[in-house]
């Protein structure tokens, strides 16, 4: 294509108009009303939707993390141990599980989670982290710390 003036050069941009608009309409397909049919309105809402999507990618991670946290706290409450003591004790016992794994264990593998809380309680007692109720229940568990002490 030969452009005789700069004005014509500016006007002819990108791919064919139909395909360019079609790309936007595909993104606007699930909108309601004229937002999905009229290009000049659709493009505004697609831009906004894409901005929300960018924010949402971060928010989703934060929300999931909060949900896992809530679930682990619930699991800790069932077994009568404080969340912070639980996490600190696991860390000291070299059990490096993240929130996602712990939350899955609390919901789907309750016996495994109970074993983890028992280990955490033993470690908390050995290191003097916090007062643990019903200490006799974790007498059968031995951690590295309790071996060193006795």
């Amino acid at each position: 294509m030969v452009f005789t003036t700069a004005v014509n050069f500016v006007r002819s941009r990108g791919p064919d108009e139909f395909w360019r608009k079609r790309r936007i309409f595909k993104l606007a397909a699930h909108f309601v009303g004229r937002k999905r049919n009229c290009y000049s309105i659709a493009i505004r809402y697609v831009h906004r939707a894409l901005r929300y999507a960018t924010k949402g990618r971060i928010l989703k991670k934060i929300d999931m993390r909060n949900l896992w946290q809530t679930r682990i706290v619930a699991g800790c409450m069932e077994h009568d141990i404080d969340y912070n003591v639980f996490r600190e004790s696991l860390y000291r016992s070299d059990i490096l599980l993240d929130r996602k794994t712990l939350a899955n264990l609390a919901a789907w593998e309750p016996y495994t989670f109970k074993a983890l809380t028992d280990i955490a309680k033993r470690r908390a007692i050995d290191d003097g982290l916090a007062s643990i109720n019903n200490q006799h229940e974790v007498d059968r568990i031995i951690t590295k710390g309790s071996l060193v002490k006795t």
């Binding site: 619930a74 409450m77 069932e78 609390a106 919901a107």
Partner: peptide
């Protein structure tokens, strides 16, 4: 409120 909302259960959502 934890008991009413079910926040005390590990299946909470």
């Amino acid at each position: 409120k934890k008991f009413l909302m079910g926040v005390h259960k590990p299946i909470y959502h």
